[in-house]
Amino acid sequence: MDFGPYLLLATMEGAVGAAVLALTALGLSLVFGVMRVVNVAHGEFFMLGAVIAWWVAHLVGAHPALGFLAALVVAPIMVGLVAAVAERLVLRRLGYDPEATIVATIGLLYVIQQAALSTFGPDARPVEPPVDFRILLPWFGYSGYKLLVIAAAAALMLCVWWVLARTRVGLMMRATRFDRETARAFAIPVDRVYGGVFALGAMLAAVGAVLIVPIQQAHYLMGHDPLLLSFIVVIIGGLGSLRGTVLAALVIGMSDGVISVFFSPTLAKILATLLVAIVLVIRPTGLFGARAA
């Protein structure tokens, strides 16, 4: 294939990856920014979202779009509930101690993964996309649903931005992040905010998973990559920065695809990985600093 179309394809692929990644990473970033908790089980919330999406779509069984839409509502809610329970029973009792929460969320990772293996099984299972059409470009065909994913993710991101920046709930979250003690002094229910943020973070991962599951498949080990990538995006983007997270997701999503135009795929992955490391070495606070809201 010629260079131009090749680059176009790599860009489109990068955009799809970046869209879902941005949603997932935003969840991690919120939890990290507000609660200072490194949630190692974040990838498992993603996986849980995909698995529940399969289950819902399977139960509904009617037109794929119906099942998908049901999954889009049910999966995040259920995952949010699981996260809220985990927050209440474990993280809160740990006082959000950074090291203890890492171990606790590793434990949570095992529990969720095993629960999925025991109930959902070891096979990869597909969910039918709500719409299935192929866009024919002069050089290659492309999935219409993938373009839809970009649009949906962008819309969801705007929603989150609106909640954070324009609503009372968002104000409470930002206040808690800024200074927990002062927030408490201003009668902000910090405990409830923490519970809400943790659930919201998990829900964002679940939404990302529901969007991706018609492209990939639900599998009980699928949480690994989103976790790693989200971590990278959160750190590169600068902690707690919404804008930074989105831009970093784009950079990460694109770099892999574009570098693979020029190098062998595995070498491209190695270079992209080293690039992230070098960026952080040069700018330890991430590309967009810690100050940006």
Partner: peptide, 28 residues
């Protein structure tokens, strides 16, 4: 020499990235 220019969670990610690159190099 490179990673210790960062600290905290950034250090965690930088070491993770180097290790991932090394792991992929084993495949390459």
């Amino acid at each position: 020499i490179l990673a210790l220019r960062t600290s905290g969670v950034s250090f965690m990610i930088v070491t993770l990235m180097f290790a991932q690159a090394a792991y992929l190099a084993l495949h390459y």
